[in-house]
Design a protein around this nucleic acid. Sequence first.
DNA 1: ACCGGAAAGG
DNA 2: CCTTTCCGGT
Length: 144
Amino acid sequence: MKGAAVTSPPVSPAVLFPDWAYKPAWSPGSRQVQLWHFLLELLSRGEGGAIGWGGEWGEFVIRDPERLARLWGERKGKPHMNYDKLSRALRYYYNKRILHKTKGKRFTYKFNFSKLILVNYPGYPPCHQRSQCLKVILISPPRT
DNA sequence: ACCGGAAAGG
DNA sequence: CCTTTCCGGT
């Protein structure tokens, strides 16, 4: 399996990203980066301030909502991005089962990692078309 | 803060 | 499709 391996420090799980998840928006023929790519990118880098893993497996906490929104806006070329709009995009993930809200915990959401894996295995197996092959995301369980 | 409908754009 | 923008409602 191909993909850029990103391993972060002690707490964060190791994450394998498919190459396309890193392709910049302006790259011809490549799909735009999706919000959950971006979140996992920051999370796996242990980026610090803006976002971090939460207590439960797959759970994350947005520590600095407006800063996260600013970073996301920069990535997408949307200078007027804010947390209100970013969180609306997150809410669209509920129906898709990519994410859900951890109720009662402020700024806390949780990835449905198993569902992500399903969603991202469109033509497997067998996989002959490159565009369909690399859509794999593996997240190893956090070590305790 | 959080939700989800509606419209619109890339 | 996947958001972005806007917004009325809880």
